[in-house]
Design a protein around this nucleic acid. Sequence first.
DNA 1: AATTTTTTGACCAGCGCTGTCATCATTTAA
DNA 2: TTAAATGATGACAGCGCTGGTCAAAAAATT
Lengths: 342, 342
Amino acid sequence: MKVTINDVAKQAGVSIKTVSRVMNNEPSVRKDTFDKVMAAINELHYQPNSAARNLASTRSYSIGYIYDNPNAYYIIDMQKGLLDSCKKHGYELLIHPTNAKSPGIVEEVKELVSKSRLAGLILTPPFSEMPHIAQALEEMKVDFVRIVSGSTPSPGVHNCVLIDDFTAAFKITNHLLELGHTEIAFLCGDEEHSSSGERLAGFKAALTKRGLQVNPKFIVPGHYSFESGVEGAKKLMTLPKKPTAIFACNDEIAAGALFSARLMNIRIPEQLSIAGFENSPFSRQTWPPLTTAHQPNSIIASQAAELLFKHTRPNANKAQINAQPVFIPELLVRESTCPASC
Amino acid sequence: MKVTINDVAKQAGVSIKTVSRVMNNEPSVRKDTFDKVMAAINELHYQPNSAARNLASTRSYSIGYIYDNPNAYYIIDMQKGLLDSCKKHGYELLIHPTNAKSPGIVEEVKELVSKSRLAGLILTPPFSEMPHIAQALEEMKVDFVRIVSGSTPSPGVHNCVLIDDFTAAFKITNHLLELGHTEIAFLCGDEEHSSSGERLAGFKAALTKRGLQVNPKFIVPGHYSFESGVEGAKKLMTLPKKPTAIFACNDEIAAGALFSARLMNIRIPEQLSIAGFENSPFSRQTWPPLTTAHQPNSIIASQAAELLFKHTRPNANKAQINAQPVFIPELLVRESTCPASC
DNA sequence: AATTTTTTGACCAGCGCTGTCATCATTTAA
DNA sequence: TTAAATGATGACAGCGCTGGTCAAAAAATT
């Protein structure tokens, strides 16, 4: 019933050690031996027992994903991408939702790593931006890959996947500018998330490039939440000089702004254009559907996992790995934005 | 650094066998010995090495959650509840999103169970309603708990958590009836999901109880999706005799109906009341916010896991476990419904 | 005080695999 | 052609725990 390494060894006519070598792609296996073993593995549908591997080996075959993000769609997409890569490389994924602001968070992460003997970790914001987390992990000598907002790879850093929020925000703002808007407001996300800062920077850069002033009253601090969008839009639309377009830091905020506009009987997009960011499924389902920027989350996640596996692989030369993939979210024009004079 | 069973034994002044007995709550351990061991465990922060346990023992310490549900919020809530229980009992959770309609789905589940040596499985719709899955799992002698739609525990079945969709739908319908609506339509979810059938039955029962006829034209087949709601509402509102209220089988459908109504310039709730089901986060964020039924998903999930652990525990008497917890989603009235004459 | 019952420990095998090191085969250099 | 270096392979111990057996010790019962 259960196929073990012994069965494979017998079938291939080699020692179990050689099978082990093949399984872990260790060097020093002759091509024909390798093929013999592979044939036996396939024939018997051999699946190494991960418990035994974990026990015998210093390294383990599971990685962790720590997150604290209210955006369920984002998380599900991330999990999907991570699972794809894990499956491909025979790893297990342990998910760990938690509260990033809890005081004992570093201890919690450390305990998770040591208890589950994780081979590595994937961090998304806000964890990817917490220096004490990164530091603790480095001290523990655990590999990890961070998914962070940024456009330019930093030299020497080999464990990052970058999301170019700056450029994407620049593009969205440009879209609004091209529609003839000049009075454009910005609804910020959480300050702790650098994505919010990057998007704001992209927004400002686009305005500046057109020779427009950035009106500080049009930059509203807030959070990545629907409620924040409701509040922010309310604040903006009761200003003596109102914006004709709002760029919200994500779709939830945009949805909140939409909601708020409706409360104030402001027609979207005729009287006010609203753009979001992220392309959450519900951005197609608001009324009107949101202009936004699309982020291929599960692809990003699986790339992050691939990067991690490159590190954790026994014979990996870490210095050699300096790829820092950069993803630029794409502009997606829908019905929540229209020309300024419309 | 690493605490093993030997350290605990030394600390407690007992043999490792006794520690093992305590860890696996085997009988024949005196109270004070038990306490001594527990004290040592706590003092040393002993965490049994799950790889070693898995390897040595016939049973394992991880459970699986298989799902195929487009509703990210639901999944996240379920995961949350499952993780809570897993943590409490020292189990690991392996998530496995997949396609329920794939032809090789039974094989896939079997492989998952055998490869990851799962102690048990949690199934939600549609998996919890697929007889061939249940049968395969029984053949493999793997414990599993199903979360299904239903109001009356079936005798002899000890591995179900029930969601009383019937009663909840009855309540929602009653709410609409009490508002004076008599022309109420129903937008169905997927036929394969028995929740859709249960909700429809509750709907019909409420009408019948009031002495009202069920108008077959007002019962629109569909799917658990936004698009289906858009279509369904369109169909209904172009009927010569239109309904004054729509009960959608879930919030997504309701959101679609809302969207559709807006396309047709129908004011909600003045001209048409719409109710959903599920209390997804976005049901608060539509315009107007949806009247719906709240389902405490993460509590349901953690109860399901508890039930599973009762089975998998070594000395469990399965016959004794006949609890089938029943959850009744609660009516939540918001602004998408109002009196018929409003 | 003698007997039965319960609790505990010592010991061993073994789960399926990897790490270490020794051995054998092959290539390269002298 | 032979010694040395290199490459390929296998024997064996052991990772940390469970499960079983059996005997000794302790407690409860008569």
